[in-house]
Nucleic acid binder design. Structure first.
Length: 272
DNA sequence: AGTGTATCCTGCAGGC
DNA sequence: TGCCTGCAGGATACAC
């Protein structure tokens, strides 16, 4: 569910609450959001101070005093809620803080994961992720060169976190529409100028979505429990049969890689 | 190196 | 009302 813009919105919402706070207690209500036993997770986090709140791809990253790092992936339905009232319906984990506050993790489907990694393990994990699309150091030429090395369909390529970090199904489809590229086009078939257009489209849609506080289809909520406001700006995602905002042709839904892809047959021709 | 399929879960919308 | 199917912002593991 949460892609880069949603996670960025959440991270920004956590910043007023967490840095400098000490975790006084860890309450695990659902063991399946952890990859290790609850007691070892709690032992690694308890009594530690949260230094800052960062984002890497779709992960919320909480570096702790002592060098270890809490990494939260929200899966499809994860929510991070500082001190919500009343308590949400699917609480999986709670951090209690030294100022009396709490950080509540709610996750209906429990596809989300919490991990604690030491500094080396975190460095390795982060290195396995692709570049951040909004990093000014990420240049269009780098995207073009990387695309040229793969036969994967563009939509699949964009979803692969090892190739580019933070892009999910909504913004992959939206960026491809903005760039006039068919979701199924093999990555290596994309000419450099078109790859530059895709780079620009990614940056544009991700920035605009952050500006709007993310996209809420159904479950996504920010740290205040409020939905994002980007959904009305979606051009193709979830709009099967509705008119393309650019040309009026009916948006089409296709399925590959086990997931829906949306495109305008006129603006995004198959052979382009 | 790709693709398709299944899996982890719950909830909701739509068809009958 | 109820039952059934399909679908969902993710990630991974498997066989081919």
């Amino acid at each position: 569910m949460p892609e880069l813009p949603e996670v960025e919105t959440i991270v920004r919402g956590l910043r007023p609450h967490l840095p400098g706070r000490i975790v006084t207690r860890v309450r695990v209500r659902r063991n399946d959001v952890l990859t290790v036993p609850a007691r070892s997770f709690a032992a690694a986090v308890r009594h530690r101070r949260v230094r800052e709140v960062l984002r890497r791809g779709k992960n919320v990253v909480l570096p702790l005093d002592g060098g270890s790092v809490v990494v939260v992936n929200l899966g499809m339905t994860g929510r991070l809620l500082p001190d919500p009232h009343p308590s949400p319906r699917h609480v999986a984990l709670v951090l209690e803080l030294d100022d009396g506050g709490r950080l509540v993790y709610d996750d209906v489907r429990r596809f989300g994961r919490w991990e604690v990694l030491d500094a080396d393990a975190w460095a390795a994990r982060s290195a396995a992720l692709g570049p951040e699309p909004l990093d000014p150091a990420y240049r269009p030429e780098e995207l073009a060169a990387a695309l040229a090395r793969s036969r994967a369909p563009l939509r699949s390529w964009l979803l692969d976190q090892r190739r580019i970090a933070g892009v999910g199904n909504i913004y992959a489809n939206e960026a491809l529409h903005l760039a006039g590229l068919h979701p199924r086009t093999p990555a290596r078939n994309v000419a450099p100028e078109r790859a530059y257009a895709l780079h620009e489209a990614l940056v544009r849609v991700l920035r605009a979505a952050i500006e709007a506080g993310g996209t809420t289809i159904r479950d996504y909520r920010n740290t205040d429990g409020a939905p994002g406001r980007f959904a009305p700006a979606l051009r193709v995602y979830g709009r099967d049969g509705l008119p393309c905002p650019a040309c009026g042709a009916a948006v089409r839904r296709i399925v590959f890689g086990g997931r829906s892809a949306f495109h305008c047959p006129r603006c995004q021709p198959e052979d382009a």
